[in-house]
Design a protein around this nucleic acid. Sequence first.
DNA 1: GATACGCATCGACGAATGTCAATCCATGCG
DNA 2: CGCATGGATTGACATTCGTCGATGCGTATC
Lengths: 121, 121
Amino acid sequence: MTTTDLPLAPTADVAGCCGPAVTRAVDTDAARELARAFKALADPARVQLLAIVASQDGGEACVCDLTAPVGLSQPTVSHHLKILVDAGLLTREQRGRWAYYSLVPGALTQLAASLGEVTRL
Amino acid sequence: MTTTDLPLAPTADVAGCCGPAVTRAVDTDAARELARAFKALADPARVQLLAIVASQDGGEACVCDLTAPVGLSQPTVSHHLKILVDAGLLTREQRGRWAYYSLVPGALTQLAASLGEVTRL
DNA sequence: GATACGCATCGACGAATGTCAATCCATGCG
DNA sequence: CGCATGGATTGACATTCGTCGATGCGTATC
C-alpha cells in the first residue's frame, strides 16, 4: 500500500530556454508516497534494524535483541521499529511478554522495483 | 561510492529472552552510507526531480524546466538538485548560461540492488 | 495480589531539514 | 562597458526528526 507506481512527467511547451517542459504536477501523490517509503530507510538505525531482523534465523527478533547492537535506548529502538512497521516494512507480533518483529515478505523488493522504474520511464 | 555493501549481523550469545543476539555494531558504517543515500530520496520534490529529468529526452533538464513542475522556488529547486548531485544520483553540466542535470547511469539501479540485499542475507 | 520484566507512550530538548526572499556570481547580449 | 538572465549562495525561519528519561501498560512469576 505504501508501494506506489512511478511519478510521470508529461511534457508541454513553456516559454524559454531549452525546450519542452512539464505542465502538470508530475504525480505529486506518487512522489509523496515514494518519498514517504524512503524516509523510513533514511536513518542508519533503521537500516541496521532491518538487517538484523533479516539475519536472525526465523526472521524474527524481539526488542531485547535489537537494543544492544544499534547502541540506542530501548524507547528509541521502539520508536524506530514503529516507523518501520508503519512503513509496511516490518510486522509486529506480540507473543508472551515479548514483541517479535519480522520482515514483510515482498516489501523491500517491491520498493526496489519502484526505485528502478524512476529511471526506466 | 555512495553505494555500499550491506550491513551484516554477526551473532553471539546474550543474557536473556529469546536466544542469540548481536555483539558487534552491525556495520554501522554501511548502514550509515545506505541511509545517507536513501535520505536523498526521502523528499517528494527530489523524487519528482529525478522522474522529470529521466523523462526528458536526452535525459537532460535545466533548472528552468524543473522549477514549474515541482511548484517550488528556484533556490529551493537548486538546493534539492545539489543534494541529488552530492548523493551521486545526478550530474551537473554547465553549458552556456544554463546548468543541465542528468541521471548518473547506474546509480538508482545499484541503490535498488543494495536495498534488495538487506532482505536476502 | 504483589512483584518483576518487556515494551510502548509521553514530554522535552537539540539538531537537522525544507522553504523562501534577498543577494551574489557568471555568462551572454546590446 | 552596461545590462539582463540563469542559477547558486546566504540568512532566517518554521517544522520535522532523533534521542533520552520517566512513566504507563500488559504479561508472566512468586
